[in-house]
């Protein structure tokens, strides 16, 4: 029945890892602004790539 102890420790360890990750992300400021990152992800990185390829609609 000592396998349950290993399971217990493993699950606790995993949960603590997630909690730690959450606390770290809050401290990093990832929860400060919930709106802007969502917009940023939709934007292409570079405008210079566009120049090499012809515009699609002409």
């Amino acid at each position: 029945m000592s396998v349950i102890l290993i399971l217990l420790l493993a699950s606790m360890f995993l949960a603590l890892c997630f909690l730690g990750a959450f606390l770290w992300s809050v401290k990093q400021g990832q929860f400060d602004d919930p709106v802007t990152p969502a917009m940023r992800i939709l934007m292409d990185d570079d405008s210079s790539t566009r120049e090499s390829s012809p515009p699609e609609h002409t």
């Binding site: 909690l19 959450f22 606390l23 809050v26 929860f31 400060d32």
Partner: peptide, 16 residues
């Protein structure tokens, strides 16, 4: 920001 981050962390700890 400090207060808000703190609230998030308190919520996280309680949920955990």
């Amino acid at each position: 920001d400090g207060g808000r981050r703190r609230a998030w962390m308190q919520l996280g700890v309680a949920g955990f």
